[in-house]
């Protein structure tokens, strides 16, 4: 974004040299409507429909959710709570909420770094000019992005069923003695979710890195190799530092996505066993629309997710800056 100013000054010049002829017909009837004003209004006309829709569909609901989070009651019969923060206080003693928070952070801490490292390594391998069958590798690894989260969750659910393919395969090669109840135990169920997330999103992040690698200076890599650096040293000391802005961006996108995890928790493990894999958004859905709907309490949960997204993005940007 640092090129903005340069862009603008460069572009402003031809316009200044050759001002477009004002339309006299318009100005005679409406003298206040100068050419500049008319164009500015046109601009607002162009961008307002989308801007208003985002206002109505994102910003206003967000503020409404905040107000809602201070109310209690069932269904639509809501009153302001006494004290106002009682929904938030209740979160602190809600064991299920704390468990879903913990689950989300387990996914975040294990899966995001692993995925980004894998994506970096894969992108670096694919960027090698001497690599063969490049298109094939890229398509194969990127392919999981084509299926929906619910679809792949159900495929994984089928493969990891008690009498499913994964147990058959492991029994077949003698790695285990009896079938593992993958989706029936907290640790293995979380493992399957993490594996699924890695499967679905590694190629996606790899594409970001491949795009960034197109823009970095290939000669710096060649130079490092000429100076005798091995592949690993070149990767770590030359390529990775140049990819830092992209790594930061993918880290923020992935963190954001993981905090909002819903489909996998819903379709792959159904949150179980006993909430041990349930994500925060899944719990939010349960509180909102199942059993005893409690919109006020659900809104408080949603605001915790919002604050976590904002805080973690801020922290990542700070950390990203500091290493310069």
């Amino acid at each position: 974004m640092s090129t903005d100013v340069a862009d603008r000054t460069r572009r402003a010049q031809p316009g200044a040299r050759k001002p477009p002829a004002p339309d006299p017909a318009i100005n005679r009837n409406r003298p206040w409507l100068t050419e500049g004003r008319r164009r500015s209004l046109t601009g607002w006309g162009f961008l307002l429909p989308a801007a208003l829709l985002i206002l109505v569909m994102s910003f206003i609901p967000m503020f409404q959710a905040f107000v809602l989070s201070m109310k209690t009651g069932r269904g639509t019969n809501l009153e302001f709570a006494e004290p106002l923060w009682s929904n938030y206080a209740r979160l602190l003693s809600d064991e299920v909420f704390k468990l879903t928070l913990q689950n989300t952070f387990i996914y975040l801490i294990i899966q995001v770094p692993l995925m980004l490292i894998l994506a970096l390594v894969l992108a670096n391998l694919l960027n090698d000019p001497h690599l063969r069958w490049k298109g094939f590798w890229r398509t194969a690894i990127f392919l999981p992005c084509a299926v929906s989260l619910v679809s792949y969750s159900l495929v994984f659910r089928t493969m990891f069923a008690n009498d499913g393919f994964v147990n058959d395969a492991l029994l077949g090669i003698g790695l285990i003695d009896g079938p593992i109840n993958w989706l029936g135990q907290p640790e293995t169920a979380r493992f399957v979710i993490i594996l699924g997330l890695l499967w679905r999103w590694t190629g996606y992040n790899m594409v970001f890195y491949l795009a960034a690698l197109q823009n970095i200076d290939q000669s710096s890599i060649e130079a490092a190799r000429m100076d005798g650096a091995n592949a690993w040293q070149t990767f770590w000391h030359v390529t990775v530092p140049q990819l830092k802005p992209m790594i930061l961006l993918t880290a923020i996108i992935s963190t954001n996505g993981t905090l909002q995890l819903f489909d996998e928790s819903w379709a792959l493990t159904r949150g179980g066993p006993a909430y041990s894999t349930m994500s925060m958004s899944h719990y939010l859905y349960e509180v909102s629309f199942l059993k005893n709907p409690n919109f006020g309490y659900a809104a408080a949960i949603s605001f915790v997710i919002l604050v976590l997204v904002a805080v973690l993005a801020f922290v990542q940007m700070k950390v990203g800056d500091k290493r310069d």
Binding site: S58, F59, P61, Q260, A298, I305, L306, A310
Partner: peptide
């Protein structure tokens, strides 16, 4: 608005 999780706007 890109940072607003969908969950936070869902109920309203």
């Amino acid at each position: 608005a890109m940072m607003i999780p969908f969950a936070a706007t869902m109920i309203p």
